Simulated scan of single mutants.
Amino acid sequence: MKNVFSICIIAMLLFSCTGNDKFVLRGSIGKVNKVMVVTKASDWNGDLGKEIRNSFGELMIGLPQPEPILSVSQIAPNGFGSMMKVTRNVLVIGESSQEKFYIKKNVYAQPQTIIYVYGTDDESVIKMFKKHEQEIIDAYIESDIKMTQSIFKQREIDNANYKTLTNLGISLIIPDNFKTVDDTGEFLWLRQHLTSGIAKTGSNNILVYAIPLKDEDKVAENIVAVRDSIGEKYIPGSDQETMHMITEEAYTPFTSETKLAGKKAYETRGKWEVKNDFMAGPFLNYSVIDKKNNRVIVFEGFTYAPSVNKRAFLFELEAIGKSLKIK
């Protein structure tokens, strides 16, 4: 099955009337993590375009190859016609009589996120973009996460099939191309074999487990030690006696505080490797503090895809991790 990042929601209806006299929007198109910028060519080739490309082109943390957070393309306002208006992620930016910033959903198609940024002159436009820069990036990522989850939901595996999820009292949206490697009741390992391009020898992997909550103030600093102990216990290399997964020693992971399942959590991005072997790749770890049950729930996704870009694969794992719910 092709990677979800090559999936486009193709338009099935232009505008058709329902029994309630409501219009059905066209299906949006476009790759995940891709934004179409509607602005004049002169602005795109000038300081504004440079600012947008630098912002969206910031490198994603933890990937072995340099890959941007968001990919961008540009189209002039007079080219933003009916065919282009079904693009899923759109940034409309330019000059107006007053400074304005707002986000609209499902304007011409669905799902769709269109962000409008206006300033009174070139300097004002750049100022408005920089002021809302992180909010803009977060809006596109959140939108793509929800869309990816909705696709996975259509072919979701019943969580009751997994002893570990049942015992932990949690749920995840897991698509049916993930197969069980290990499910002890305390530790779950799922694997999706990648089938597209030269990544067909690789895999996407999910780990789920919980550890006791001993000291909330030390959860973040212990994430690497915990994942290394889990790797030694459960994730062997080709030689089970001398090889197992560890956090790459030459790269310091980046940890930030976030919220997941309505609880305080830590997101950690970094690189993994197999001790005494040549296998390696990126990982994404969510450590969720569940005070009620005196534990830390851990979701981790890691990718092995030699010689190809990995942003798209890791984004799928992020969408699954962010679907976590505690029952």
Results as ranks from 00 to 15, higher is better:
S238F: 08
E241F: 11
A139V: 05
T195L: 14
I137R: 04
G94S: 09
H244F: 03
Q112G: 02
N45P: 02
N293G: 08
I230R: 05
Y162G: 07
F129L: 13
I151V: 12
S171Y: 02
Y108N: 15
A225E: 14
K322F: 00
L317S: 07
G49P: 03
G231P: 05
Q154D: 13
T242Q: 07
A250Q: 15
T166Q: 12
I289H: 00
N161A: 12
I141V: 13
Y286P: 10
Q192N: 15
D176M: 01
G237N: 11
I69N: 02
I198Y: 09
E316R: 12
E221K: 12
V90D: 02
D228V: 03
A76R: 09
K263V: 07
E267L: 15
K275P: 04
V308F: 00
V296I: 10
V296H: 02
H132E: 14
L70R: 05
G119F: 00
I320A: 09
V308G: 05
W272P: 01
M60Y: 08
E95H: 11
V219P: 02
A261M: 05
H132Y: 14
D277L: 07
L59Y: 11
A41E: 15
S73L: 08
P68Y: 01
G49R: 04
V24M: 05
N177A: 09
F23D: 01
T148H: 02
E186I: 02
N45K: 15
P77D: 15
D158C: 04
V296E: 01
S97E: 14
I136T: 00
K22W: 04
K34Q: 11
R155A: 08
L165H: 09
S171Q: 11
G169K: 06
K153M: 11
A280M: 12
G202Y: 01
H193G: 08
Q110H: 08
S323Y: 02
V226I: 15
R269S: 05
A199Q: 04
A210V: 06
V288H: 02
K292H: 07
F278D: 14
K105Y: 12
T195E: 15
D239H: 05
T242S: 11
S196L: 10
F152V: 05
N161G: 01
S97D: 14
D43Q: 13
E99M: 04
V35Q: 08
V125R: 00
A210P: 09
F80M: 09
I115H: 00
G321K: 06
G270Q: 02
Y266C: 12
S287F: 01
E123H: 08
K271M: 13
E51Q: 14
T180L: 07
M279E: 10
E267I: 11
G94K: 03
P306S: 11
P306W: 00
G281H: 01
